[in-house]
Design a binder for these strands. Structure first.
Lengths: 197, 197, 197, 197
DNA sequence: GATGAATGAGGATTCATTCAT
DNA sequence: CATGAATGAATCCTCATTCAT
């Protein structure tokens, strides 16, 4: 079997897992259910993933890879000011999650208690993500547009906290709003708080 | 048995549950374990709580009652400006959680995936809490110190998001810092973002 | 629940296990089947035994306890010659197994491959049993009726080997013979081989 | 592929099976493991053997063929007395097993519980083997050196029982002794028991 | 002939909950 | 009120076997 076909099947299983886990929660989803939705036998799951938990980790890894990749693109852009980068970052975070509600549910709800189990693993990816935000803030400080005495990492966590809460709130609200529509007010508050007075 | 004694036993069970669930997670904790730590028989748990889930809900309710009570005290204080109220609010949130790491773990980690199950219940208490923050922000707008065009509820969620992330970060970090020590930088960023320019 | 009633239920489960395992083999028997025959729920098995394997060990322990107890009675009898003791020993071994075909099947067939897993445990009980035989042989040497240069332990193993093969042969043969009927020829050959010439 | 090459591959698979099953037991060994060690694909196993069980049967058959062939050579030797033949038989049994510990493990441990499954099959080969021993004993009776009233088949089983226990004991003991070294004491006891007084 | 990816039946074990004492 | 023994549903994972390539 070609690597490509294997990869495709792996993706199909991950997609099925995202869908089911988003709807029923990690503990409420059986491996059988995921297999059925993916159109494979139960045992096949274990040819591609070590365990049910590994499936969850893999969902996280796949998503974070994309997140970090896209975020890095923004942070490393040449000739772009920190304010604009922050604006783009906020927009990216909210639209990536806003585009895929199932994934968002998993990120905002299922991964939380899983952090318990996966602490190290997930935290290391998260650290990367936070570091990207922090770099934007540092750039801002260097440019003189953000406060001089800013603790970049701590502030990055606050930025993340806001984005995270926006996402959670959107996930749990039944209303049919677009998550990305919150970009502007979020950016406003953030820039207000970060700018030199 | 007097109501008082019953109440005391109920509290003992809740305390045991907080302790065990914080350490092993909701799904990793058995009702038996909680019973043993509380010094009662397994069946006794069911004389005080409808189910294991009810136990979790009750932990949440008990904590939120105290949170909301204390927060209401701040919000309803007469003759105190919005900025000061916000400052106190931030300090309260961070110290209540910072004082009881087990409870903080449950709030920051265990409740998240439980939101899935408990959506309505927990959200209603949360709404009360968010409403309290929003009232402070509205007061600030009325006083002219916070932006005129502020969406108070949305901004309240951002405030909450920051506080929440601070708490999560503290819970997951192994370092022996005090959560309350983050009050100042958090308040600074928030006030900066909320103030009229 | 009284200790007596608990013990009785434990015995009932063990009896059910002996019966089922003798018929279908250890791997061919499910815990459910044992539970059904014992008239308890699946989970109840685990209140009395740590695991399916523990069930097998316990069957062994229970039987060996009786074997060793009865055998010790023979070996320690005062004023009885070694030849007579050996005669009784052979008779005991063959009648204990001959009385309970299910138990015999488990001893002769199921325990063998289990030795693989349980090596130490079962071997220690076996060593006790072999030691008892060896003591009879030593007594015989002292009395001058058995060969002077006998390696008592090695000879004890041979005695055991003969008894064991008799039992296995009986278990696997479908004929309706009595195992104990082989006592005489076995004793004859053994005494012939052991006696001084 | 030539018959010879096929035969060679079949042998390689059997060898791999002996090695793995001796170490991990029949139920602890997967077909995959055997295939990997034999250097073939899982499916290939099934081109040479009907099932996993057939693999075990085939190990038994291959070994018994050699056992019976060599044993027949001893039994059918012209001009050799029964006592000498018995001596040679004992030596043969113990050295064939003593030369290949893996095979011995399978014979003494794994085949036992398999007898359960394979009863008929293995018993027929065993009967042949026992019959060979019995013929030596009958020859001894005819020569007047062994007891006149000997039940040859029963006595053969005792002979086998002793040999078997010697082998099992050797397999389970960790000591680095040679199995064949027990030939002399075994023969002594046997001849003592069988001879006319 | 050979491969090895896919299958799916099967089973030990856990644990929330009940209820006779 | 309290107990804790008993229940039995529920599920992850393994692995012998098949079959399309």
């Amino acid at each position: 079997m070609t690597t490509q076909r294997k990869e495709a099947k792996r993706e199909r299983i991950l997609d099925a897992a995202v869908l089911e886990i988003a709807r029923r929660g990690y503990y409420g989803t059986t491996v059988s259910t995921i297999a059925r939705r993916a159109g494979v036998a139960d045992g096949t799951i274990y040819l591609y993933f070590k365990s049910k938990e590994d499936l969850l980790v893999s969902i996280f890894e796949r998503a974070m890879q994309r997140f970090n990749f896209e975020a890095a693109g923004i942070v490393e852009a040449d000739g772009v000011g920190a304010e604009e980068k922050l604006r783009r970052f906020v927009a990216l975070h909210l639209s990536l999650l806003g585009e895929d509600r199932d994934l968002a549910v998993i990120f905002q709800v299922e991964f939380r208690h899983t952090l318990h189990i996966l602490e190290r693993l997930s935290r290391s990816r998260m650290r990367d993500y936070l570091a990207l935000i922090a770099r934007v803030l540092e750039q801002g400080t260097e440019e003189g547009v953000f406060k001089r005495d800013l603790d970049a990492l701590l502030a990055a966590k606050m930025v993340f906290g806001i984005l995270d809460e926006m996402a959670t709130d959107w996930v749990l609200s039944k209303k049919n709003t677009r998550l990305a529509s919150r970009s502007a007010p979020v950016t406003d508050l953030l820039l207000g708080g970060l700018r030199t007075s």
